[in-house]
């Protein structure tokens, strides 16, 4: 399979000279099993250009299929969907997977598409769309690919995906806070808190961490939310994002082959990202895994079809 990054940014797109090399589009990764339909993870603004590229194949003829796995429905993970060209072509089949919400997923996605926010309602999409509701722990197949889900520590809950196909594994863990300081869920949390957690909360976080490590176990590629520097995390543990150190720690325990820093903060310049990458590479000199930082256009071949 091939894994290609179309959007690597968190929170909000960040155009401008300072982000030219890593890219300013929000989260979107394409996983392309050998000879099979694309599996897309997240639909941030990066999915717009991916959509254009897919229109050169079966999706452009109205004969294509693709699956979109959504980590969670915060804007930076769905805002590109109305600009995904294959939706506007009759005959295409688009499967959208996301965690179960209080209302049906189709209703959630309709909110983004409908008046007064966007001119073309979801019901007017020409492609046939189907919505698949997931919960953490779910396991299912997309063609020859096996997909497994685990819960992440993020406001209103995000899920991580493991995709096993072509004798290789990619794991996508974005967005998540570390599993140490705060348990993030449905409540709005206004300010940080550090310190002793109630035993129930501590156990829940430990279980979540263990399930993420199990999900990432022996992966060929682990893509991990590293939006924050340690200094930023210290004032924002309730925002639901991690530091590079957290990614490295999970990569070590899960014994992955590569870990990729991802979901860069919007105002992080290319030079700052370079410095973070260089620093992290020093930290993992004694480790057996490779450490990368995601940029738009980065393509990694894994397993069969390498």
């Amino acid at each position: 399979m091939k894994v290609r990054f179309w959007g690597v940014r968190g929170s909000i797109p960040s155009p401008g000279r300072a982000t030219n090399r890593y890219g300013g589009n929000t989260s979107c990764v394409e996983v392309r099993p050998e000879g099979a339909a694309p599996i897309i993870i997240d639909a941030g603004t990066g999915i717009r250009k991916l959509g254009k590229s897919l229109m050169e194949d079966a999706l452009g003829d109205g004969k294509g299929t693709c699956s979109i796995l959504i980590s969670h429905t915060h804007w930076d993970h769905v805002q590109g969907l109305p600009f995904f060209s294959p939706l506007y072509r009759a005959g295409n089949q688009i499967h959208i997977f996301a965690r179960q919400r209080d209302m049906h997923l189709e209703a959630v996605f309709s909110q983004q598409h409908n008046a007064p926010y966007f001119p073309v309602p979801l019901a007017a999409m020409q492609a046939e769309m189907s919505f698949h509701e997931l919960i953490e722990g779910a396991q299912f197949d997309i063609g020859k690919a096996r997909v497994t889900c685990a819960r992440l520590n993020h406001p209103w809950v995000a899920i991580a995906y493991r995709i096993d196909v072509d004798r290789a594994t990619v794991v996508y863990c974005s967005d998540t806070a570390p599993f140490s300081d705060m348990l993030l869920g449905r409540d709005f949390i206004e300010r940080p808190s550090f310190g002793t957690l109630p035993p129930g909360t501590r156990d829940e976080l430990a279980a979540m961490r263990a399930s993420v490590i199990a999900l990432a176990r022996n992966a060929d590629l682990l893509i991990y939310d590293t939006q924050f520097t340690p200094e930023e995390y210290a004032s924002r543990p309730h925002w639901g994002h991690s530091r590079p150190d957290d990614a490295i720690e999970i990569a070590r325990e899960a014994k992955v082959k590569r870990v990729c820093l991802y979901h860069h903060a919007p105002l992080r310049s290319d030079d700052e990202n370079d410095a973070i990458l260089a620093h992290c590479r020093e930290l993992v000199q004694g480790d057996s895994f490779e450490l990368l930082s995601a940029y738009e256009g980065l393509e990694i071949a894994l397993g069969d079809g390498k």
Partner: peptide, 10 residues
């Protein structure tokens, strides 16, 4: 319509 990052819009 949508933010357009990239060197072509610098």
């Amino acid at each position: 319509s949508i933010p357009a990052p990239g060197p072509e819009t610098n």
